[in-house]
């Protein structure tokens, strides 16, 4: 997966590109953790899923892991623009009650 990020007004936005599964998750997990650690002081981290073409339950574990890391750093984690399929996976898990959708 490819990632792009921006930081503005206390918000770190991380945009993900590609498929999220068991094979691709370790690299994107490490990259997001690196970005969270390097951007201490932001209030919010928003994971943009608009360009995630496929996501299975690996994505749920990925988001919960980043949620815990962001919490430890005093940041709120949110997601935005999941496609229909990713939204279905996230909805089934009930994750939006923990990680709101923008």
């Amino acid at each position: 997966m490819k990632t792009e990020w921006t930081r503005s007004d206390g918000v770190l936005k991380i945009k993900l590109y590609g498929d999220m599964d068991e094979y691709t998750a370790p690299a994107v997990r490490a990259e997001c953790d690196r970005l969270i650690d390097r951007n201490q002081g932001v209030r919010k981290v928003i994971i943009n899923l608009a360009e995630v073409a496929f996501m299975d339950s690996t994505g749920i574990g990925f988001l919960i892991g980043r949620y815990k890391r962001a919490q430890r750093c005093g940041m709120q984690l949110m997601v935005e623009r999941p496609n229909f399929a990713a939204d279905k996976v996230l909805s089934v898990s009930g994750i939006y009650s923990l990680i709101p959708r923008v």
């Binding site: 997990r29 339950s57 749920i60 990925f62 279905k88």
Partner: peptide, 15 residues
């Protein structure tokens, strides 16, 4: 400890 959601079978059943 591996960031597993434990939702794999639930998703198979639901989808």
């Amino acid at each position: 400890g591996d960031e597993r959601s434990g939702m794999g079978f639930t998703i198979m059943q639901t989808f």
